[in-house]
């Protein structure tokens, strides 16, 4: 049985439901009275991926107030994936989702230099009042390189597992690619003519420890 550990950060405006989403995903529970998150909270979810593969997801629930964004760089570090959430009933949170994505991409990327895989979740789809059209979400999703989006309802427990599963698949693909990449790097590094690649391989070696 092998075990993989992934760090996933959850970001988005205040009260879009980040903490609720994590609680629903990890404990399958829902409360109306969460306290706000200050700084960062943590949760762990263990998933049996295949017969001999466990995946541990380290979920970083990051405070949503814009004021804290300067502090978030250290929280983003070494993330394998990201979930950006917004509230379908509050248009401003949708507009800010793009800013969160920009903020993420400006502060971190994967070890191979590609952007951190990022999912866009539109919460509170159980409410009748809505301020965002599906076509708009679709448009933003394509324009800003989200790997996908879906409407969810944390309260009703709708579409909680599915997007996370999708995200894990994405991470597994990346992981396998990088294993191969890292392998070819190692071979290249042993080749004295490929000195310029050596630096990259050291970066990889330190990254494989990846704070997790």
């Amino acid at each position: 049985m092998t075990e993989l550990l992934f760090k996933i950060i959850i970001i988005g405006d205040p009260t879009v439901g980040k903490t609720s989403f994590i609680q629903r995903y990890v404990n399958d529970s829902f409360r109306r009275d969460y306290k706000m998150t200050i700084g960062v909270d943590f949760a762990l979810k263990v998933v049996k991926w295949t017969e001999n593969q466990m995946i541990k997801l380290q979920l970083w629930d990051i405070a949503g107030q814009e004021r804290f964004t300067s502090m978030t760089r250290v929280y983003y570090k070494d993330a394998h994936a990201c979930v950006i959430m917004f509230d379908l009933t509050q248009r401003s949170t949708f507009q800010n989702a793009v800013n969160w994505k920009k903020d993420l991409d400006s502060k971190c990327s994967l070890t191979d230099g590609t952007p951190v895989p990022c999912l866009l979740l539109a919460n509170k789809c159980d409410l009748s009042h809505r301020e965002v059209e599906q076509s708009e979400i679709e448009k933003i999703c394509r324009e800003h390189d989200f790997i996908g989006w879906t409407e969810i309802s944390v309260k009703e427990g709708i579409m909680i597992e599915e997007p996370m599963r999708f995200l894990m698949e994405e991470m597994m693909i990346k992981h396998t690619e990088m294993e191969g990449f890292s392998e070819s790097m190692r071979q290249a590094a042993s080749n004295p003519e490929a000195i310029h690649l050596k630096q990259q391989s050291t970066v990889l070696a330190t990254q494989s420890g990846c704070g997790c």
């Binding site: 205040p14 107030q65 814009e66 004021r67 248009r91 401003s92 507009q95 793009v98 800013n99």
Partner: peptide, 18 residues
């Protein structure tokens, strides 16, 4: 009202909202 601005609302306003 805030449709046109892609910038987040100014922090003062949003903090009152918050």
């Amino acid at each position: 009202n805030s449709e046109t601005s892609s910038e987040p609302p100014s922090s003062k306003e949003s903090s009152v909202e918050l």
